[in-house]
Design a protein around this nucleic acid. Sequence first.
DNA 1: ATACAACGGATAACATATTAAGGATTACCC
DNA 2: GGGTAATCCTTAATATGTTATCCGTTGTAT
Lengths: 140, 140
Amino acid sequence: MRKFEDSIPLQLLKAREATMSFFRPILQEISLTEQQWRVIRALNEYTELESKQLAERCCILSPSLTGIINRLEQQGLIQRRKSPEDQRRVLLSLTDEAKQMFDEVSPRLEARYKAMAEQISEEKLEQLNELLSELCKLKP
Amino acid sequence: MRKFEDSIPLQLLKAREATMSFFRPILQEISLTEQQWRVIRALNEYTELESKQLAERCCILSPSLTGIINRLEQQGLIQRRKSPEDQRRVLLSLTDEAKQMFDEVSPRLEARYKAMAEQISEEKLEQLNELLSELCKLKP
DNA sequence: ATACAACGGATAACATATTAAGGATTACCC
DNA sequence: GGGTAATCCTTAATATGTTATCCGTTGTAT
């Protein structure tokens, strides 16, 4: 039988930890969790999103997202409004304060990402990207 | 600036979700969480481990592990004993009941793993393994 | 031997993950 | 148009993730 360590899910977990260690110090400095930053990053790119779409893109289940949004709203970083056409849907966007904060912090995180990317080479990163995309298409 | 989706940590997360979806139904059937199974799997292979070593191998932080062990002990699946040489250390091992349960369930999970592996081909899996190992060596 | 740093677990406090169930709104069907 | 199923979000309950701190034990130097 295959060994404990030879598990793709476990390896993915470890690799993720390794890569996240590049960013954690900065996020800790600005008192945002990894998930909160993911949400902010997504909203910065898409301007306004429905809760469901946001959850999908960030890979966060909606019950978790509810709490995350609540806390970010509390901190004045996110705005909520109901969709005019469909009262069930919630539209989310960044506040001006959040946009400004994003512009300040983002370059530092990008620099860390670049530092990481250079350590493995652009070529391997490309290759990894390809393989991970394939994994995502798998269906049980 | 690179797009939101072009983030290695996020891609690792999504890929992990995709692969775990192969196993989740079975784990749910036997009422064990992903982390609990990881712990059982590790102990099945190494017989007896210190808490710290177990945490390391399973990629679980020790505060989380404490709770996981408590619950597994409660269910009669794990035994705790203090190291005779060093009273600080805790030695963990599976109960007979857990070993039996493992032998029953493991084949089903292995079959799912195989099904997953075949969908991407052994070759790509090897390649992926290699790249993930490299990622794990990265240090900020 | 004594003081003190270092270590291994455990606890605390908060944030998130996961599954199930609830409440409000909308779409569908007869 | 009224009943009903489907949809989106939220709440609830339990488990885990994350950081900081505490507590008992061991190592170490004086």
